[in-house]
């Protein structure tokens, strides 16, 4: 098979940049630890309360250390359960100080949902039987939309909440 000279240059350049690109991705993933969310913990989707993190009283924002938080989220069609406030009404807004280390931990009691915080890198699928988690630091104060971005039924566009990152 004959390859034209320009074609050789073109393919060498193309395949070369491909290699560099894949190495960069690999270093990012395995050396620097930015893996896509891939939690391997399973759970019984019909009895999520059996898990410590998804008991009624564990839901929502939990302070677990100096400047360290966990947010436990229980998704179901068509809402995110983020626990209850002092008055006993469901929490719709989570407030986190800027720069804190936060882990979002979520699962679903029924169908597949998404969990995305628009304007951040927090974006993961919630699937029955699995816990999904995402650890991050939110550095920019402001109001962010939490929403479901995977089709979960005819009310999926109503499935949302708010995250506020404030100046401590």
């Amino acid at each position: 098979m004959h390859l034209h000279k320009y074609e050789k240059i073109w393919l060498t350049f193309g395949i070369g940049s491909l290699l560099v690109f894949l190495i960069v991705l690999g270093i990012g993933a395995f050396y620097q630890g930015t893996q896509p969310p891939s939690c391997l913990v399973t759970i019984d989707p019909q009895n999520v309360q059996a898990h410590e993190s998804f008991k009624e009283e564990s839901l929502g924002l939990q302070k677990v250390g100096e400047n360290e938080y966990v947010v436990n989220v229980l998704a179901s069609a068509f809402q995110y359960n983020l626990g209850k406030d002092d008055k006993g009404s469901p929490v719709r807004t989570i407030r986190i100080p800027k720069g804190a280390n936060v882990t979002f931990q979520a699962t679903t009691t029924d169908v597949v949902h998404g969990f995305q915080i628009a304007g951040t890198n927090v974006n993961m699928m919630l699937e029955p039987g699995y816990i999904s988690d995402f650890e991050t630091t939110l550095d920019n104060p402001g109001e962010y939309t939490i929403l479901c971005n995977e089709y979960c039924g005819i009310g999926q566009h109503t499935m949302s909440a708010v995250l506020e990152v404030y100046e401590p």
């Binding site: 719709r92 998404g114 995305q116 915080i117 628009a118 304007g119 951040t120 109001e143 962010y144 939309t145 929403l147 479901c148 971005n149 995977e150 089709y151 999926q156 566009h157 109503t158 949302s160 909440a161 708010v162």
Partner: peptide, 17 residues
């Protein structure tokens, strides 16, 4: 900007975004 696919119109609780 973060807007989801597969979604009918929604104001997502009235956020600025």
């Amino acid at each position: 900007l973060g807007a989801p696919r597969r979604s009918a119109f929604s104001n997502y609780g009235g956020t600025q975004q």
